[in-house]
Amino acid sequence: MNPLEGFLLKAYLDGELDNEAAEAFELLLIERPDIAELVDADSALRIGLGQTTVASATPALSPVATAPAAVIEQAGQAQRIPAVVPDARFGRRRSFLYSPALAAGVMLALGLGAGYFAGRPVAGDMQTATLAYIDKTRDISAKPVIALPDGGAVVLLAPVATIDACVPEVLLRQAGANDMRANAVPDEFGYASFVVARSALRLGEATVEVRCGSAPVSHYAITFVSATASGAGQSP
């Protein structure tokens, strides 16, 4: 591998290539077993370490104080609810293998409707959180409106389209804020729960994107409003 190939490999693995460059590199990858070995090594680290937690991998590691969900990370792990963490890298990732027809089909299957605020605390002695539910069973064309509490933690229950044998990545995009990302295994109804600190959510428009690997699967818009101002905030 020459220095240029090494440079491109690093950029590819770090998600720093644009679409065209990444596809060109992937063509090279097909032809080069020596490069494939290093891509495999990166995937192996990602898969292998993805099955563990920071605590079990490095007990002495300091907590990630900058992550909005860090305050309830322990609670999220105990409930097998993925904590949402910021991922600025995701914003630069190229769109790949995007199929508009597939995405449209998934959007129809989701049948997104208006979200509602349940105001139900999460039980247990971990932390109290508010459940915000993005309802997919109501109006198919409406943009879900999620009423948020003034503080504390929020458990966002969101529809997550899946592709067979893929653990989807869910990305929450908000204007003026870092993107947040989580891996999620949806339940039998196609929903996944995400724990996030209320302070990390901004009132206004947001977008939820679902990806399988680097391939976008679906996306939908939601609106965060204040439960106090809107008069919502209790279960319907």
Binding site: E26, L29, P33, I35, V167, A215
Partner: peptide, 19 residues
Amino acid sequence: RCVPGLRALLLRLTRNLET
């Protein structure tokens, strides 16, 4: 001869060994 690179690509896309 393309199999190693093909597998590396697929694993990166799917992140699943069986798939």
